[in-house]
């Protein structure tokens, strides 16, 4: 690896870590926050006909998980190009 490539790789990794951190915070807030710790509070609000905390626990969290992975894959496509590390 040349010096420029090394620098590209280093910046790419930092940007990747930043993105992973943001997405995992959302992951934790939705599953451990909304669906478990805050569920008793959120249950005073209804989504449709079911209490919101319960809905996050049995539906919402899973939708968020799927979206998070596709968002990561899409943003990484762009990031791979920008840092010139794509396959």
């Amino acid at each position: 690896m040349g010096e420029k490539e090394r620098e590209d790789a280093r910046r790419y990794w930092q940007a990747n870590i930043r993105l992973i951190t943001i997405l995992l915070i959302i992951w934790a807030v939705v599953s451990y926050g909304f669906a478990i710790i805050l569920a008793p509070v959120l249950n005073s609000i209804n989504l449709g006909q079911v209490p919101l905390g319960f809905w996050f626990a049995q539906q919402g969290s899973m939708y968020v998980f799927v979206i998070l992975i596709f968002v990561y894959a899409k943003l990484m496509d762009k990031m791979d190009q920008e840092h010139n590390v794509q396959e």
């Binding site: 992973i20 995992l24 599953s31 669906a35 478990i36 626990a57 049995q58 969290s61 899973m62 992975i69």
Partner: peptide
């Protein structure tokens, strides 16, 4: 199992799906 556990069935629903986010972001690539 969920129909008997009610809300607590979420342990399995989230537990057996949330790991894929960890896989996709932290391990698989």
């Amino acid at each position: 199992l969920i129909s008997f556990l009610g809300y607590d069935g979420a342990i399995y629903l989230m537990g057996w799906t949330g790991g894929y986010v960890l896989l996709a972001l932290l391990l698989a690539p």
